[in-house]
Amino acid sequence: MSEPTRTAAPAGVFPAAQYTHVVAATGRLVVVSGQLPLDRNGELVGAGDPAAQARQVSANLRHCLAAAGVGFQDVVKLTYFVTDMAPPEFLLEVEAPPLPKSVGAPPAVVAE
């Protein structure tokens, strides 16, 4: 993969404190579909335990990224789908590698 070029504050755009407005790169683009908290046998992991489910989703993402020859350090966007907009503190407990600072905070979408 090529090293991405980051433009934190393009001309005419106010610089953001927590993310980069533009990231450009050449090379492959890898898109990973949404992941569920299912183990390799298709069994739900952590019924009623959002933190356990988030850890399983993170593990699944790690496997998917590895299959493409990349890792969390190559991720440029994440979106979380949650069923409750209460602050998802459990996401802070997920043992996922830190994302590049240019990614910023992933948005959360309420899925009802």
Rank of each mutant, 00 (worst) to 15 (best):
S2D: 14
S2Y: 09
E3W: 13
E3V: 15
P4W: 09
R6A: 10
R6G: 02
A11N: 06
V13K: 12
V13W: 14
F14G: 07
A16C: 11
T20Y: 06
H21L: 15
H21M: 11
H21N: 10
A24W: 03
A24C: 03
A25G: 11
T26H: 15
L29K: 15
V31E: 10
V32W: 01
G34F: 05
Q35P: 01
L36R: 12
L36Y: 07
L36I: 08
P37H: 02
L38Q: 04
G42N: 02
E43L: 02
E43N: 01
L44G: 00
L44A: 00
V45I: 04
A47T: 02
G48C: 00
D49Q: 13
D49S: 14
D49T: 05
D49P: 09
P50A: 06
A51I: 09
A51Q: 12
A51V: 04
A52L: 03
Q56Y: 07
S58G: 15
L61E: 07
R62M: 02
C64P: 04
C64I: 00
A68Y: 03
A68H: 00
G69A: 01
V70L: 04
G71A: 07
G71N: 03
F72H: 13
Q73I: 02
D74M: 08
D74Q: 05
V75G: 01
V75P: 04
V76L: 14
V76R: 13
L78M: 13
L78C: 11
T79W: 05
T79M: 04
F81G: 14
F81T: 04
V82S: 05
V82N: 13
V82C: 06
T83M: 07
T83G: 13
D84G: 07
A86F: 04
P88Y: 01
P88L: 13
E89W: 10
F90T: 12
L91M: 14
E93N: 14
V94R: 13
E95Q: 14
P97I: 07
L99Q: 12
L99C: 09
L99K: 09
K101L: 14
S102I: 03
G104Q: 01
G104D: 03
A105E: 09
P106F: 07
P107T: 03
A108C: 15
V110W: 02
A111I: 05
A111F: 03
